[in-house]
């Protein structure tokens, strides 16, 4: 890549920081210059986020259909998986998977609910019933 080929496209980093790139100068020697962003990778990031949005949407549907507990929804919302939730809460992975079941979830102690709601940074009541009073999408 030559210095004048360093892309200067719009990106999510725009107002935060430019990125340092290595490229060849006029004499064919390496030097560094800043890039505002590259459309190719902005799009890649967009694709990653739309995949996340889709997962969150699907999780919400499952919660509304009572196929799954709100735990799944919040886990997806926070970009986590069972391993990460386990690492933060101290619950075993099998416990967390069990808590996905609505009937198990409903009987969780307030202590356990508290651990989850702290991790997901929501009020315990909202954690237990995130979509009450909201119309079905």
């Amino acid at each position: 890549m030559k210095k004048n080929e360093i892309p200067q496209d719009k990106s999510a980093l725009e107002n935060v920081s430019k990125e340092l790139c290595y490229a060849l100068d006029e004499n064919g020697n390496y030097s560094t210059d800043l890039s505002k962003g590259w459309e190719v990778k902005s799009k890649a990031l967009e694709v990653a986020w739309s995949a996340i949005d889709e997962r969150v949407f699907d999780a919400k549907q499952k919660v509304l259909n009572r196929e799954c507990s709100p735990l799944l929804y919040f886990m997806e919302l926070k970009l986590m998986d069972v391993e990460i939730v386990s690492a933060y809460t101290g619950f075993w992975k099998w416990q967390i998977k069990r808590h996905f079941k609505p009937n198990v979830f409903e009987k969780l102690s307030s202590k356990k609910i508290g651990k989850y709601s702290k991790l997901f940074e929501v009020d315990p009541e909202e954690f237990k019933d995130p979509f009450s009073g909201k119309p079905k999408p």
Binding site: M1, I6, L13, E19, L20, C21, Y22, A23, Y30, S35, W38, V40, K41, K43, A44, L45, V47, A48
Partner: peptide, 19 residues
């Protein structure tokens, strides 16, 4: 998209560290 992000996203200096 994930491959491209690992290769080009902040932190590689471009071209998956090859430059």
């Amino acid at each position: 998209a994930q491959l491209v992000r690992m290769q080009e996203e902040i932190g590689t200096g471009g071209g998956g560290f090859r430059f």
